[in-house]
Nucleic acid binder design. Structure first.
Length: 404
DNA sequence: AAGAGTTGCAACCGCCGGATC
DNA sequence: AGATCCGGCGGTTGCAACTCT
């Protein structure tokens, strides 16, 4: 049995939105606040339009005034649009503070970094870029950024193809994605690739972010952590990720951790909040294909906490990111994270319109302070520090509190 | 100048999963 | 428990604008 359509396709308008439709939708939402039910919205808008008193009669037609502009009142029986279409129009175009086009290099870097980490999870990527919509980022990636990356990668193709033929691999067998088969095979060089896109020497990535811009420092930190940790490997054979996790004795190790998605989806062992000695060493992958392990903290929905032992900041970051991804699968993007973080009871942060990462990081820093002391070293590195080539760890920087 | 090809982006489509009935 | 509703998401399409020949 097929799904009932969300609206009567025959009676709804399709195609580009007119200024009048935009004004109608915008004024309704501005007047009535967040939309509870998008499907019912067009009809409600009809009622709203009927109630507008600013009607003007010109040339035997009824017009109405919204925000100082005059539009033909052709929506007296409701906006003749599908509710989903209204939602999309609002989210992607009409809602306040939307930015279109003109992506900065910083944004490029963030998109590349996150794409590398999580793939085409556009809504999550968009959540890290205030004012950007998932649709915009998706379009930008598909039309520009991907080509930019591929262009940078072209020089490497010959080398990789030669190598591939040496090893007797067919293209189909070697590729998980036709476009990116070459990049896949460059292994850990994705990070270098993202760096190259911006003509940015690896050294500069380690500079301290602007302390006056929390948002910037945050996103810079996110990427710096990733980029910097790999940028020094550009000339090296990518190291197996197992090397990062040797100190966790009971984990499961995915069979192949060489490609970037696997690298980023394998996370460190963590224990549920509140268990002082409940070290449950485990590792898991959150990619759909792998499903190697279910995170131990998923059931009780608590914020994961650093386990004992040495925990590299990159591991923590990676973990938090994957957690967000995991929770995003259960609920939806950052609302879900919000819900799960708050439900732990250990975090009392107010959210407002804040950035998810901002919350996670500040909350985590706070948590670390409260539970482990050594907060100065930890939080200062966490918020602002670039990850040095030596792989400084919480364990080392945080003092004895981090040791088992 | 005009037709063909390319690009950019808004909008649509169908699927998924949680919520509700 | 199962059907249905609905929001959200990622992939794809259509088309206007632009560039090339």
């Amino acid at each position: 049995m097929g799904r009932a359509p969300c609206c009567d396709k025959a009676s709804v308008r399709k195609g580009p939105w007119s200024p009048g439709e935009d004004a109608t939708l915008k004024s309704y939402i501005e007047e009535h606040g967040p939309v509870g039910n998008w499907i019912a919205l067009p009809q409600k808008i009809g009622e709203f339009c009927k109630s507008i008193h600013m009607h003007v009669h010109v040339h035997n037609r009824v017009w109405f005034v919204v925000c100082g502009d005059v539009f033909q009142a052709s929506y007296s029986s409701g906006l003749k649009r599908c509710g989903k279409s209204c939602r999309l129009r609002w989210l992607n175009y009409l809602r306040p503070n939307i930015k279109h086009g003109g992506f900065s290099e910083e944004e490029d870097r963030i998109i590349c970094g996150l794409y590398i980490s999580i793939g085409s999870r556009w809504s999550i990527i968009a959540a890290q870029l205030p004012g950007r919509t998932d649709n915009d980022i998706k379009n930008y990636w598909n039309t520009k950024l991907k080509k930019k990356l591929l262009g940078k990668q072209r020089n490497k193709e010959c080398h990789v193809r030669k190598d591939r033929s040496k090893r007797g691999l067919t293209k189909a067998a070697a590729s998980r994605n036709e476009d990116f088969s070459v990049i896949w095979e460059t292994g850990g060089d994705w990070y270098g690739l993202a760096t190259e896109v911006n003509h940015m020497p690896p050294a500069s990535i380690n500079q301290s972010p602007n302390p006056n811009s929390h948002q910037t420092s945050l996103t810079e930190y996110q990427l710096r952590g990733r980029l910097a940790s790999n940028s020094n490997q550009l000339e090296q054979e990518p190291a197996p990720i197992e090397a990062d996790f040797l100190h966790y004795p009971n984990h499961m190790v995915p069979p192949n951790c060489y490609n970037p998605i696997e690298r980023s989806t394998v996370v460190s062992c963590l224990r549920p909040l509140g268990l002082s000695n409940g070290l449950m060493s485990t590792r898991y992958s959150l990619s759909n294909e792998d499903n190697i392990n279910i995170p131990v903290f998923a059931e009780n929905n608590t914020l994961p906490q650093i386990s004992t032992g040495e925990v590299d900041r990159r591991d923590l970051q990676s973990h938090l990111f994957e957690y967000s991804r995991y929770v995003g699968n259960i609920y939806s993007a950052h609302e879900a994270m919000d819900r799960s973080m708050c439900s732990s009871g250990a975090l009392s942060h107010g959210r407002g319109s804040g950035n998810v990462w901002e919350d996670i990081i500040s909350s985590t820093s706070q948590l670390l302070d409260e539970n482990y002391g050594g907060h100065e070293a930890v939080s200062s590195q966490w918020v602002g520090g670039g990850r040095g080539t030596g792989g400084s760890s919480f364990g080392k920087s945080g003092g004895g509190a981090w040791d088992t």
